[in-house]
Amino acid sequence: MKLKQTLLTYWILGFVLTIAKAQDPIWYDYSLTYYKIPTAQDGIYRISAEALQASGINLEGLDPRMIRVFHRGKEVAIHVEGENDGKVDPQDFIDFYGIRNDAELDKKTLYQTPHCPKSIL
């Protein structure tokens, strides 16, 4: 009887851990502001301080050491030139490797169309 309880406990624990692992962690924070950066091709992109300001980002008080870039919920490595002083100067820029939209998320089907016979009659 003790063996059955132990095995059942391990089975339940394994099942719970499998479900927990299957969930993607939430990478976003609703209290922060995010900006979308369009990338038409795979490659290295540079965003200047001028481009940031032209897109409506207030550079006053923006600490470039806190800038993060994500692609599909995973953080992308970036290089921020001029970040050491803790402010964005006109000559500063951000370099990162951007990946084009390959429509991979569009290929995932949320709803399956039920089988419908060609002829109802």
Rank of each mutant, 00 (worst) to 15 (best):
T113S: 06
K107W: 02
R100E: 14
Q41C: 01
I99R: 09
G56P: 00
T9W: 04
P117I: 09
G82T: 11
V69N: 05
A54I: 12
L110M: 06
D63N: 15
Q5K: 05
Y34S: 02
G98N: 09
Y30A: 11
L52M: 15
Q41E: 08
K87V: 10
V88R: 09
Y28P: 00
W11C: 14
T109E: 11
L32V: 07
T33K: 09
I94V: 15
G82V: 06
T18R: 09
D106Y: 07
L121A: 12
S119L: 14
Y97R: 13
Q23V: 14
G43D: 08
G73A: 02
Q112D: 09
A49R: 04
G43C: 11
D63K: 04
E81N: 02
D29E: 12
V69H: 10
L110H: 06
E81Y: 08
C116V: 07
V80D: 07
G73V: 02
Y97H: 11
P64Q: 07
Y35S: 01
E83I: 01
Y45D: 02
L3H: 04
Q91T: 10
T113Y: 01
L13Y: 02
G43Q: 14
P117C: 03
E50H: 13
K87L: 03
F15P: 00
I12Y: 12
L17N: 13
L32P: 01
D85N: 15
N101Y: 13
L121T: 06
D106I: 03
A54E: 14
I47Q: 09
T113K: 12
L62P: 11
I47P: 00
Y34W: 03
R68I: 11
S48V: 06
G14H: 09
K107G: 07
P64C: 13
K87N: 07
L3E: 00
G82E: 07
H71R: 14
D95P: 03
E83A: 15
Q5C: 04
Y30E: 12
V80Y: 10
A20H: 12
A40H: 11
E104F: 03
E75Q: 14
A22C: 08
M66D: 10
E81L: 01
Q112H: 11
K107N: 10
G73L: 02
P114A: 02
N58S: 11
Y34I: 01
Y30T: 05
D102H: 15
V69D: 07
D24C: 00
Y35P: 00
F93E: 06
I12N: 02
E60T: 10
D89C: 06
A54F: 12
E50A: 13
Y34N: 01
T18S: 14
D89R: 14
W27E: 03
L7W: 13
R100L: 09
G82H: 05
Y10D: 00
Y111G: 03
E104L: 13
Y45F: 14
L13M: 13
W11L: 13
G82C: 05
G82S: 08
V76A: 05
I99D: 01
K74L: 07
L110G: 06
R100M: 11
G86Y: 10
I67E: 04
G86S: 05
K87I: 03
Y34Q: 02
A103Y: 12
T113A: 04
G43K: 13
L121I: 02
L7I: 13
L7P: 00
E83S: 15
A54L: 12
A49I: 08
R68S: 05
I26L: 12
M66L: 15
A40D: 15
R46L: 09
S55C: 07
D92T: 10
M66P: 01
E60V: 06
I67L: 15
I57T: 00
